[in-house]
Design a protein around this nucleic acid. Structure first.
Lengths: 220, 220
DNA sequence: ATGCAAATGTACTGGCTAGTTAAAAGACTT
DNA sequence: AAGTCTTTTAACTAGCCAGTACATTTGCAT
């Protein structure tokens, strides 16, 4: 929405050029358009039309369509993981921490459908562009580290069973949170929209948290 | 693979035309290509090149690209649900029946990645083409009916808690089985392929079944 | 065989769209 | 106030690709 830049008061007086602002604007619009139509479905002309600048500028700053797509993907991952990092769970008892993490993830995915769609699209492309970006890989291991910390604490307190795999746990949380957004169109086309009302979603979310919790809890 | 048609012995003698066979061949190839590249990413010329017939025939039988895509989607749903229908769970006790259903679904999704990819693609398109097909909707309610039957039996035996929603339960089973295939590219790009080895997948599958079972089981 | 409709082959086109060319205008340096 | 690098505009092009025109062949009915 707002760009993290020196004030651009191009309302009246002298200023007119604003490279960083233009780039940010392109990236923002491109994110929306790629998320809407996919890589091959997107027309650069549509992006250009919706930016405050021109097609020429897109090529000037981003090289080509794939370059722009790659940058969009990176920016999207960065933004989302940044949001997740704001969550501080270290103070909480492990059960509570995990429960919070799950509900947060569920809500967070729901709040960022464009990100989900980009990931879907990237999966259709066999993660070709993701693999090329080491930036993204680095950011994501942080998520696993956070989970591993919670698991360790849970083992120590005796709340969790031993030998839990943080990656597998992350997989479960992701699956239940991701599918909810990614497959909403087909799912509601087939089975109605009841499950996607606010109240049903809250119940579902709590249910999901309970499922994940049950899967790590020490059994008698 | 094989076409469900009157024997076409076009090896030697008189015969040459084989409309149904040609259509089936087009549909089979188109399924693969659409699953690989998506709707807008697919080139009709590529489909044509990989069929035993020509581009002209595609338009002759399917009208246009979207028509072909719609038919591919319908055929894919029909084939998959048909496979599911082969599973007979009525004889089993409800807990066992549900457990089998989950492991079956998990394996079944894994065995049909092209179908999964088509559904992903359809979700990117907001289920536009799915909504137009009432064939597909009808086939899918059967899945819910089967689940509802299991739930009812489980409530009667006292194994399951009351008030379970079959649609929500189907959502959970689908989420855990679907994500495993749909997001495998990005997930393994980010976290490695360990989770997708045969042994890890078996463990994951059993874990998933246990999770679902735990979520329906009557609690003290 | 002969008429007829269904099926198929060949060659084409027109519009769309990623990417470019050329040049001008802004801003910073001296 | 000139020189120079960066940013921006506007018009252009080349090739790809969905879809078609037209001709031809095949199978069947009579």
């Amino acid at each position: 929405m707002d760009n993290p830049l020196p004030e651009n008061e191009n309302a009246k007086g002298g200023w007119k050029q604003d490279p960083a602002g233009v780039q940010a604007n392109i990236l923002e619009i491109a994110t929306m358009v790629f998320a809407e139509h996919g890589l091959s479905g997107t027309r650069i002309d549509e992006i250009a039309a919706r930016t405050r600048t021109s097609k020429r500028m897109i090529y000037y700053y981003f090289g080509d369509k794939e370059g722009l797509y790659a940058r969009v993907l990176e920016a999207a991952y960065a933004k989302v993981r940044e949001g997740e990092a704001s969550l501080d769970l270290d103070g909480l008892p492990p059960t509570e921490a995990l429960s919070r993490l799950v509900t947060f993830t569920f809500d967070h995915h729901r709040a960022h459908p464009d990100f989900i769609r980009l990931v879907m699209i990237e999966n259709v492309h066999q993660a070709d562009y993701l693999q090329k970006s080491d930036v993204i890989r680095r950011v994501n291991t942080a998520a696993i580290d956070r989970l591993a910390a919670i698991i360790r604490r849970g083992e120590e307190t005796g709340d969790f069973c031993h030998g839990l795999d943080p990656v597998a746990l992350h997989w479960k949380i992701s699956a239940l949170s991701f599918f909810n957004v990614s497959n909403r169109p087909t799912f509601s086309a087939l089975f109605g929209t009841t499950l996607f009302s606010e109240t049903a979603q809250r119940r579902l979310r709590d249910d999901v948290a309970a499922m994940v919790l049950a899967s790590v809890r020490k059994t008698p």
